[in-house]
Design a protein around this nucleic acid. Structure first.
Lengths: 195, 195
DNA sequence: TGTTAAAAAATGAACGATTATTCATATTAA
DNA sequence: TTAATATGAATAATCGTTCATTTTTTAACA
């Protein structure tokens, strides 16, 4: 019973991921999601109270996965600079491997504060903090200048990667390969923050 | 006649800027915009064919202004690194001075490809190219390493600033002042791209 | 193992609320 | 007086959500 429920709500989220990515949240119809999931419209309302809830659940599920993966990747390196480069690479790789999810996070996450009044995306903050923690570690080890403010640097670094992904998500063909982009972007920050 | 039309459509755009920023495009009602502009609902349809057109016109108008301002600011410096720092400062200042516009660009511009199938935001591309050109100039003058790919670096730099603005736009209080953020972010890139 | 009744899950047509857009009419300017 | 603008009530289409009904699952019992 418990098992089956999870199975079906995951199926709905998978369908919603596809439809939200294609049409955007507002233009996506419940009936389309239902059709994509191979169920009746009404069934969705057994698993989710409102349309909004599907998007929230989608964020939670995807961000949990992303966060878990990235934590594991970072733990494979000990040097802060190597961690930064690995973060860049896997962030971009993630986007590439999950275009639909990426597009939703890119586009709909931005609006989240608008249509979901009190939804605080804690998982996203934690994701940012992965970068902040690496920078902090670098400062403590004397590798990164004491002038660097982690709260700014973590956002700048994430923003740089994020803009690169947006470019990929919205354009048809990828102009630069992942390795190159990850190496370039992380090198700006690594060299720029060095002690 | 020409004069009056422009005057009124600017009034509508100003009202729309306020309402779109507060509610987001989809939740903003034409009737609200009309009320804010002090005109009747139907009047909007004399100046704009659809709701979408208001948003497109809004982008065009704001981006044109932003682009013009930034071009002027950049031209005040001759050193590429100084240009980069000035770009960072005025970009962030612009956000601060035009919160409503910033919020719309942050949030709604992201969706533009979704609801306006064939609207290519050329002004935005030009804005990015301002950065690309500075980097190119820096390479030619031997200040910036030949390894730096302007197409990646311009997006990374813009993304870094953009993420910082998003943080400001979506949060109540500003944690870091503009000068600090601009100096930090531009220093990562300047030092990171140096020859 | 097969039967069956109660519970749970699923269905999809119908409802009702919302809102972009239109247009017959009124107002203002030329 | 005529043309251009503006009005806002009415229209029409859209869709999220509900719920009476049907189907499937569960588990109790012979």
């Amino acid at each position: 019973m418990r098992h089956k429920n999870n199975e079906k709500s995951r199926k709905i989220i998978a369908a919603a991921t596809k439809i939200f990515a294609k049409k955007g949240f507002y233009k996506a119809k419940i009936s389309e999601i239902a059709k994509e999931a191979g169920i009746a419209d009404g069934t969705i309302y057994i698993y989710f109270k409102h349309k909004d809830d599907i998007l929230i659940a989608l964020f939670e599920e995807k961000m949990k996965e992303v966060l878990g993966n990235m934590k594991k990747q970072i733990s494979l390196e000990s040097d802060p600079f190597a961690k930064i480069e690995r973060f860049a690479y896997f962030h971009l790789k993630l986007i590439e491997d999950n275009k639909d999810m990426a597009e939703i996070i890119q586009v709909e996450l931005r609006q989240s504060s608008k249509f979901m009044k009190n939804y605080q995306n804690k998982k996203f903050a934690q994701y940012l903090d992965l970068i902040g923690d690496i920078i902090q570690e670098g400062k403590e080890k004397g590798l990164i200048s004491q002038d660097i403010i982690p709260g700014i640097a973590k956002r700048a670094f994430f923003g740089a990667l994020d803009e690169m992904s947006r470019f990929w998500v919205l354009s048809k063909r990828r102009k630069y390969d992942i390795e190159t982009a990850a190496r370039q972007i992380s090198s700006y920050f690594i060299n720029g923050m060095k002690n």
